[in-house]
């Protein structure tokens, strides 16, 4: 297999320094909705100026370049071992090039190896598919917003929330309220309903790969996504928790099978610096979207 590491470095560079167009457009729209001269509007001005500068200088949008989460879709016959090796090599190089901050820390010793590598770092998911080409989705998931994610085991008596979509709505609104501005609002909220504790968290984060204008195929969830985004924005938390009209940019929901005994609602929080990019490698040609 040929060495794709240079393409993976470029994927990391783009993810870290070049905010996707749909996110940037949503931030512009949010700015326009805030009161003239408010702290919220000033925050959006800084955010948008930062997005522009980072792209122009090819420097990380945020210094917390997060956990690199790679979803690798490969045609039959490819070696996942080789792909993993090349991606790890690219992560190390991209760290040397300051596209990534050395972020992986040994939990027990507190030591930082300085290269973003560890037994379980970065995070990988491999999936063989029927397409004749390779696709690698990368998201950089920041720590501040990760810390404000929340999981609810339903029913939840504090929220008077049961095992239905009304219960999901209550849980998600509570999660947004608890987060306040601490996860660098405004956010995209990824929600998973069902699963076990682990699979539910993973599914909630997979929602961040969806484009913002993506409409949920399930009309019940599509409606709830819209409603939650609208209602969360009445909370008044605003960008950075300065107060304002935009607390979330979008809410994305999916469900997964559960056991009769369990009903989890998991809300993952993605900060405004919603960094994701995809590499497509087809017939020897690499493109980044």
């Amino acid at each position: 297999m040929e060495n794709l590491a240079p393409h993976f470095i470029e994927l990391i560079r783009r993810a870290s320094t070049d905010l996707p167009a749909d996110i940037e457009a949503a931030l512009h729209q949010a700015r326009a909705g805030e009161d003239e001269g408010s702290a919220a509007q000033t925050a959006f001005d800084s955010i948008l100026e930062n997005v522009r500068l980072s792209r122009a200088h090819s420097t990380p949008i945020c210094q917390d370049t997060g956990t690199p989460i790679f979803y690798v879709y490969y045609p039959t016959g490819w070696s996942t071992l080789a792909l993993k090796k090349q991606i790890r090599e690219a992560v190390e190089k991209a760290t040397q090039m300051s596209y990534l901050r050395p972020n992986s820390v040994d939990t027990l010793t507190g030591k930082n190896p300085g290269n973003n590598l560890g037994d379980d770092f970065p995070y990988f998911h491999f999936e063989e598919w029927e397409e004749p080409y390779l696709k690698v989705d990368l998201m950089l998931k920041g720590g501040g917003c990760e810390n404000v994610g929340a999981q609810y085991s339903m029913p939840d008596s504090r929220l008077e929330a049961g095992r239905d979509l009304e219960g999901v709505r209550r849980a998600v609104l509570d999660a947004v309220h608890q987060a306040q501005g601490m996860g660098c609002a405004p956010a995209v909220i990824g929600v998973a309903v069902g699963g076990d504790r682990g699979s539910s968290y993973i599914k909630s984060k997979e929602q961040f790969y969806r484009p913002l204008d993506d409409v949920n195929a399930d009309p019940r969830l599509a409606e709830l996504e819209q409603r939650l985004a609208r209602e969360a924005n009445t909370l008044g938390i605003g960008p950075m928790g300065f107060g304002g009209k935009t607390t979330v940019l979008s809410v994305k929901i999916d469900s997964l099978e559960r056991l009769p005994a369990s009903y989890f609602v998991t809300a993952s929080y993605m900060c405004w610096a919603d960094r994701r990019r995809s590499l497509i490698y087809r017939d020897g040609v690499a493109t980044i979207e």
Binding site: I47, L53, I61, Q63, C184, M240, C271
Partner: peptide, 13 residues
């Protein structure tokens, strides 16, 4: 003092 979270390139300047 609250700085703008995520506005990291701008702040570095």
């Amino acid at each position: 003092l609250h700085a703008v979270g995520g506005a990291a390139t701008l702040i570095a300047s």
